[in-house]
Design a protein around this nucleic acid. Sequence first.
DNA 1: CGAAGAGTTGAATAGTATCAAAGCTTGTGG
DNA 2: CCACAAGCTTTGATACTATTCAACTCTTCG
Lengths: 240, 240
Amino acid sequence: MAHRLLSLMPSPDETGRVLNGTLATTITHAYFARPGERPAMLHLILEGWACRYQLLPDGRRQITDLLLPGDLCDIDWLNGFKTSLPAMALTPMRTIALERGAVEALARQQPSFSDCLLTDAQEKFARRGEAILSLGRRSAIERVAHALCGIFVRLQRSGLAREHTCDFRITQLEMGDHVGLTSVHVNRVVQDLRRRNLIELQHHRLTILDFEKLARLGQFTAEPINDNPVSQYINLKEGH
Amino acid sequence: MAHRLLSLMPSPDETGRVLNGTLATTITHAYFARPGERPAMLHLILEGWACRYQLLPDGRRQITDLLLPGDLCDIDWLNGFKTSLPAMALTPMRTIALERGAVEALARQQPSFSDCLLTDAQEKFARRGEAILSLGRRSAIERVAHALCGIFVRLQRSGLAREHTCDFRITQLEMGDHVGLTSVHVNRVVQDLRRRNLIELQHHRLTILDFEKLARLGQFTAEPINDNPVSQYINLKEGH
DNA sequence: CGAAGAGTTGAATAGTATCAAAGCTTGTGG
DNA sequence: CCACAAGCTTTGATACTATTCAACTCTTCG
């Protein structure tokens, strides 16, 4: 079961300090946390996609953060671990659940871990900056191209992409809520990308036929690699 | 000279620890920091507006963060004080300049100050979330209405608005780069808001005639008040 | 007073949303 | 294992929103 998750597994920690967590699974649409709560558990994602989102009174929805394998689900430790936006599973998920108290304690005791959390926050902050640029200034096709590149690279770095393909389990409606378009228009853009021979997208699987070109179309440049990821500090206690 | 800045001046700090800073001024379009740099000085804004922005290769610009009086110019302490996006003055500015080393030292020594920085970061993170919602899901008039409400409330909280009016010194082009529209369209939306008797906007001054209605139009809800602002820790050394 | 920048206007166009209906997939219960 | 239902994807027609381009006016500042 664990071989696909290998790259997310902890490396031996020099200081010997490690956070112990237990395996957890959820179904699609489950909430990891709801606004105002101070969740007992934080989750490191092993498999599956989740998001944070915001709603308008009339039902319009915007996904503000996409959470992929390797991500710590709760950036809200910045906010005293009090959740500001709902975090919801977009697919079935497999996560490592960590006790909030243990995370807080390790952050106080081990500066390198506290730095790691800071880096994690900075990464998410920068990602929101990219989203603002996309939504404000990129056309529909540029936005989708950029988003696909970003998702692919993140999955690749977690060892969840091989060659030029990866799983792609969210719907075009959810994609629309992510890139600020309607699902109908996402569909038209996707077809356009297919016609240009840039991607294949079917049966929950994305294949990027020409990454170079797709990246140019979306003005995508990969973010720097984080050499101090949260996953390093986490140990999965066997015997779920 | 100081009476307008009163609400930003430090209150006596219980612990006696205070960051000493000196008055600095800049002209429009001056840079506080450029990407990759590790600036020697951080700036607390007293007067004037600044922004962080991102450019596309073809010149399209998107403002990702608007920095107003009371804001610490450099959120990038999250990133080890290494600037990620350029921060530029949109108007002439008056700031309190702080030595980076002193800020770092105080953050290490005084937990309440380090919490304060965390809160500051969380506030900016949340503001980016709001921007993503606006750009992704709100119409042009809703975006502008929302932005005007947000700006007014922030200035009001810094004591820089009286009754229903405040200074408004950025151009419609810059406003467009902030809310993801062209300057032409911003102009049309502003005129629409005038026709509806919601605002007056002329001679660098904004008057909100009906805040209630404007807020409803933009789905604006004020963010919670930060009771541990950065400004509390800062002392302006006289004799610039 | 003149120049440069900012705001305003109109017409034409491009881009995206909306609405409605018809195929496809996928997962489920019989 | 099949058939069905629900949810996704696809298509077309149409309306609307925002951009583009170009000119003109008004402010501001030196």
